[in-house]
Design a protein around this nucleic acid. Structure first.
Length: 332
DNA sequence: AACTTCTTCAACCGCCAGTGC
DNA sequence: GGCACTGGCGGTTGAAGAAGT
């Protein structure tokens, strides 16, 4: 006699999220920060269960998510981490901060697993879920013991890494004292939603900004008339954009609309954004951060895996060519 | 052009761990 | 200690589009 599913209530909407819902969700989280999912549907009027809201945020709307094709390097990382950690997608995702566990899981199941099976059909004992050849005569017990230890260490490292990142996450949603100089957003006095402003730290919100820009673009193309929610409260961005929703040839592109919508109001944030854009790869930024955090705090030793992830391609090749046993020797 | 099969991925479901009372 | 509640995780599903026949 378990609890009824949280989504089993009448009136709870299921299925794909609409742009309107996304905007409401993002706006609410921008103002209150992620968390407290239970009260989110009530406070926003979203007809979604809390779990659905959290998933939508973490898998799609969260800042810093990169979408699109996985690079060869990401492929290799996933393959190797999967071999080390198994189907612990959240742990694997912690090494790929721009990718969600869901993305990685889907990518594994649709792409990499096939490669895996091809490799396996080449001849080994078919140890499910691992690229390592079982010709490395490990007994099942040995393997399980190693895996347990690995999981334990991964948990520890992940927990440390997350605790080090926490301030970044929450601080991304703090509200600057000063009023944005470039804000064209109409604030609302409504006690519920729609939102006031979207003042998300530019550097951390860049990717999500792009996500939602695309999202809004699609939305605008589908609906020539901007819904009231947005036209009245969010994308009514003064003279330059007030009609922006009805034409793709308009000067006010969705990106522009969202630029205003997000109202990057801190010069520091803009600078951070520019700086971050100078980086050729956002993953480098996160890895730098992670490495810095780890090294600075001396809390999590750099494992061979860490080193592999941080080091250059040549080192990766070296480690890739190693057997699992060799590569994990530093862990046990 | 019509139909079938395959692929992709967002979203859902059920379970579990942590927390507070 | 037991219970209720919440958040997180991993497995699975199903709709939509692509590719093949």
């Amino acid at each position: 006699m378990g609890r009824p599913p949280c989504c089993g209530k009448n009136g709870i909407k299921k299925g794909p999220w609409t742009p309107e819902e996304d905007i409401i969700l993002v706006s609410y989280i921008q103002e209150h920060g992620p968390g407290n999912w239970r009260s989110l549907p009530t406070n926003t009027g979203l007809m979604r269960c809390s779990k659905s809201c959290r998933l939508r945020w973490t898998n799609y709307l969260r800042p810093g998510i990169k979408r699109g094709n996985f690079t060869d390097h990401e492929d290799k990382m996933i393959i190797h981490l999967q071999a080390l950690l198994g189907n612990r997608w959240a742990a694997i995702a912690s090494y790929l901060p721009q990718r969600t566990d869901n993305d990685i899981k889907n990518y594994w199941n649709t792409h990499l697993k096939k490669k895996h099976n091809k490799v396996q059909s080449g001849g080994d004992d078919g140890q499910e879920g691992h690229f390592c050849s079982s010709s490395q005569s490990q007994t099942k017990g040995q393997w399980e013991r190693r895996l347990q230890t690995d999981i334990k260490m991964a948990k520890q490292a992940l927990s440390e890494a997350l605790s080090l990142h926490k301030p970044t996450t929450s601080s991304s949603f703090t509200f600057p004292e000063t009023k944005p100089s470039n804000s064209h957003i109409h604030t609302t006095t409504s006690s519920t939603y729609p939102p006031k402003q979207l003042n998300i730290n530019a550097s951390s919100y860049a990717s999500s900004y792009e996500n939602i820009s695309k999202l809004l673009e699609t939305w605008m193309m589908k609906s020539p008339k901007t819904p009231n929610l947005v036209s009245n409260n969010m994308v009514t961005t003064g003279s330059s954009c007030s009609e922006g929703a009805n034409s793709t040839t308009d000067q006010c592109t969705p990106d522009h609309a969202f630029d205003s919508l997000l109202s990057f109001n801190s010069s520091k944030s803009v600078e951070e954004l520019n700086n971050s854009k100078l980086r050729t790869n956002e993953a480098d930024f996160f890895q730098d951060q992670r490495k810095t955090n780890i090294e600075t705090h001396h809390q999590v030793p750099l494992t061979l895996v860490d080193n592999w992830l941080f080091d250059d391609e040549e080192c990766h090749e070296d480690l890739m060519n190693m057997s699992l046993e060799e590569s994990t020797s530093g862990l046990f």
